[in-house]
Simulated assay, not measured.
Amino acid sequence: MLDLTNPAHIVGAVLIFLGLAVLLISAIGLYRLPDLYLRASAVGTSAGLGVALIVIGALLIDFSGPNLVKAIIAVLAQLLTSAVGSMAIARSGYLHDSPPAAITSPDELRETRRDDVEV
């Protein structure tokens, strides 16, 4: 139960709302950004941060030893997998010739990539 006289509960609720705001901004970016690479970067970064803020906020509201262990594992797993997942999506798009937005310049990978070598 949320107790607004407890400072930890107030900070926890604020962190949860900040996490939700980060995820909402990420969703808007997913819709508005022009290409796969910018979308993968925005979603990977913000998903890690947004979920971490929500988990830490929930921990502050219902703090206990077992919840602390679960929160640490969840935050570390989220930060690691969101970064790796977004890079894997971007690499897959690049290897399958997904076109970058016109504002993306220069394409340093294209300049160093040889056509006869599979990347």
Score class of each variant (00 low, 15 high):
Ser64Leu: 07
Ile10Gln: 00
Val119His: 13
Tyr94Cys: 05
Ile73Tyr: 08
Arg32Glu: 11
Ala52Ile: 04
Glu108Ala: 15
Ala71Lys: 02
Glu108Asp: 15
Ile10His: 00
Leu59Gln: 07
Glu108Thr: 15
Ala74Met: 08
Ile103Gly: 10
Leu68Ile: 02
Pro7Val: 02
Ile103His: 13
Ala88Ile: 11
Ile28Glu: 10
Asp97Met: 02
Gly65Arg: 09
Ser26Ala: 12
Asp115Asn: 12
Leu33Gln: 01
Ile16Arg: 05
Leu38Trp: 14
Gly12Glu: 00
Ser46Phe: 08
Val117Thr: 13
Leu23Trp: 05
Asp116Ile: 14
Arg110Lys: 13
Thr5His: 11
Arg91Ala: 06
Val84Gln: 04
Val43Phe: 09
Pro7Asn: 10
Asp3Lys: 00
Ala47Cys: 08
His9Asp: 00
Tyr37Arg: 01
Ser46Val: 02
Asn67Ile: 03
Glu111Met: 12
Tyr94Asn: 04
Val11Ser: 05
Arg113Gln: 14
Arg91Lys: 08
Tyr37Leu: 00
Ser98Gln: 15
Leu80Met: 11
Pro7Trp: 02
Ile103Ser: 12
Thr5Ile: 04
Leu60Asp: 00
Leu36Asn: 13
Arg114Ser: 12
Glu111Pro: 03
Ile28Trp: 11
Val22Leu: 08
Asp62Ser: 05
Gly19Val: 05
Gly44Val: 09
Arg110Cys: 03
Leu68Gln: 15
Gly12Ala: 00
Ile73Val: 14
Thr104Ser: 15
Leu95Tyr: 11
Ser41Lys: 07
Asp116Asn: 15
Gly65Ile: 06
Leu109Asp: 05
Leu59Trp: 08
Val43Met: 10
Gly93His: 03
Ile54Cys: 05
Leu59Met: 05
Ala52Cys: 07
Arg114Trp: 10
Val14Gln: 12
Asn6Lys: 09
Ser26Glu: 09
Thr5Trp: 01
Leu33Arg: 03
Asp107Gly: 04
Arg39Val: 12
Pro34His: 07
Ser64Thr: 11
Leu53Cys: 15
Leu4Ile: 05
Ile25Trp: 15
Ala27Arg: 13
Leu38His: 14
Ile16Asp: 00
Phe17Tyr: 07
Tyr31Leu: 14
Ala58Thr: 08
Met1Arg: 09
Ala40Gly: 10
Leu30Asp: 15
Ala27Asp: 09
Ala102Pro: 08
Ser26Lys: 04
Thr81Ile: 13
Ser92Ala: 07
Tyr94Glu: 09
Ala90Val: 04
Leu33Asp: 01
Ala77Gly: 09
Ile56Gln: 11
Ser64Ile: 06
Asn67Gln: 15
